[in-house]
Amino acid sequence: MRTIRKNFRLFWQGTLLSYRALFAWLRPVTYMASKIFMPLAQMFFFVFLGTYASGKDTSDFYVIGNAIQITSISGIFGVTMSVGGDRDAGTLPYLFGTPANRFMIFFGRAFMHVIDGAIGVVIALTWGVLLMGLDLSHTDLPALGLTILITTFSTCGLGLLMGCLSLLTANVMFVNNFVYFSLLIFSGANVQISTLPVWMQIVSSILPLTRGIAASRALAAGASLTDISVLLISEIGIGLTYGFLGYFLFSWFEIQAKRKGTLETV
């Protein structure tokens, strides 16, 4: 019981303090820009481009797709900064020199970004309702809230894996940008997945966000929570898979760094 309490405390303290300690967008101006203006710019771009190209009023498709995809700003960039930030701060040796439960340290790094990412999606959807005519009057809003949380969680799972890469290479932001822009297509945010080549559909099916975006669109069209439950369960499964892959990579990194003496050299 004492160990559980200790680990819960570690998770919670790690969640709050590591978010403040390692997340580089905490300055209000850059934070506001990333949370308010960047989603707006992305949505404007794809909504107007998409409706112009398709020649139909398909704005809801792009608004929902991009609003949900916005979560990957927190899920990928934010989580990567939180995991990799220890390397930049020089705190890795002190972190790995403690007897703390590595599982709690690792997953604690992502928790605040799930909340943060979900807030970003809500802001983006608000822009959609206010400026782009998104109609959520027939939407089960609690179910949409749950979908947003689950999708953000699964994207953070991918972020944890990317964060571990940042412990191995200094160039992870390049990879992050590649993943972020790939998700604009592969997640189905801006293209119907059924129109993609088969290999792209396969990639799409193993990425987070894909099912979350599909579930959100279904909810906006009037579907119930039961209708989308399979999509949500799959999305959770994908998030956990990436999260655990990241955790194993994190553990592997610690062992390798201690074997090779590379804890501070990357």
Binding site: R20, A21, L26, A89, G90, T91, P93, Y94
Partner: peptide, 14 residues
């Protein structure tokens, strides 16, 4: 080896 964005007390707390 310290979290510069945090206060001294918060570093110790963590």
């Amino acid at each position: 080896g310290l979290y510069w964005r945090l206060s001294g007390d918060d570093n110790l707390r963590y």
